[in-house]
């Protein structure tokens, strides 16, 4: 595929627990086209989150190579990876993980503090991101003043504020009620279709997975593709 955003080639990942080595991914290869909305499914311990972490550059494979947006991230140093992450990826967590003492605005602004943008420019980006997720009127609210669905939307705004090419979502609806989950999934679909964001979403929920353009099943560290 010529327009691949991410390429995972022969990746193996072993974890060491005490003296035992556990293989989580085995010689896994995967191509994620630009603009893809990929759902990763599979039983617990199948390696979904590990694969997501490897794509985000927050973990390193035992062997193999990962290239994202033309840059090989395997073997990059911690500083270079942090810089790369701040520009290339947006991460959405199951438990939102907003900073409780910061307002919605300040939470979304957080990744921009690592850039050289001026205060006014940051404001423009933050308000735009909050507008996309439909929460520009809640910018001064603290996380405790928001519902779970709203918190997750703020987290999505934080993930997209730096305009990353790759969005990685780990069970983004796992902690939400059906209505909020639907809103979040609709938002992710919109980001994929309207803003051409490439999304990789780990989920246990078949309904959530059905909103993706492609579903892959992981079993015992191996990929099994399923039609969306």
């Amino acid at each position: 595929m010529s327009d691949a955003l991410a390429e995972v080639t022969g990746v193996t990942k072993d974890y060491k627990r005490d003296k035992q080595s556990i293989r989580v991914l085995e010689a896994l290869s995967l191509t994620i086209p630009r603009g893809d909305f990929l759902a990763l499914m599979g039983p617990s311990g199948s390696g979904k989150t590990t694969l997501l972490n490897l794509l985000a550059g927050i973990d390193q494979p035992t062997s193999g190579k990962i290239t994202v947006d033309g840059k090989t991230i395997t073997g990059l140093g911690e500083g270079a990876l942090a810089k790369w992450r701040s520009r290339t990826t947006g991460f959405i967590f199951q438990l939102y993980n907003l900073i409780p003492v910061l307002t919605a605005y300040e939470n979304v602004e957080l990744p921009l503090l690592l850039t050289s943008l001026s205060r006014a420019e940051r404001r423009q980006h933050v308000m735009q991101a909050l507008d996309i997720v439909g929460l520009s009127d809640r910018s001064k609210h603290f996380p405790r003043q928001l519902s779970g669905g709203q918190e997750q939307r703020v987290a999505i705004a934080r993930a997209i504020v730096v305009d990353p090419v790759l969005l990685l979502a780990d069970e983004p609806t796992g902690d939400l009620d059906a209505k909020s989950a639907d809103e979040v999934l609709t938002l992710l679909q919109r980001l994929n279709r309207e803003f051409r964001k490439t999304i990789v979403m780990v989920t246990h929920d078949p309904k959530a997975a059905a909103r993706a353009t492609r579903i892959l099943h992981l079993e015992k560290g191996q990929l099994v593709e399923t039609a969306a």
Partner: peptide, 9 residues
């Protein structure tokens, strides 16, 4: 989480 966002050690 902050490290995920790009904050260095």
């Amino acid at each position: 989480v902050m490290r995920c966002l790009g904050f260095t050690r």
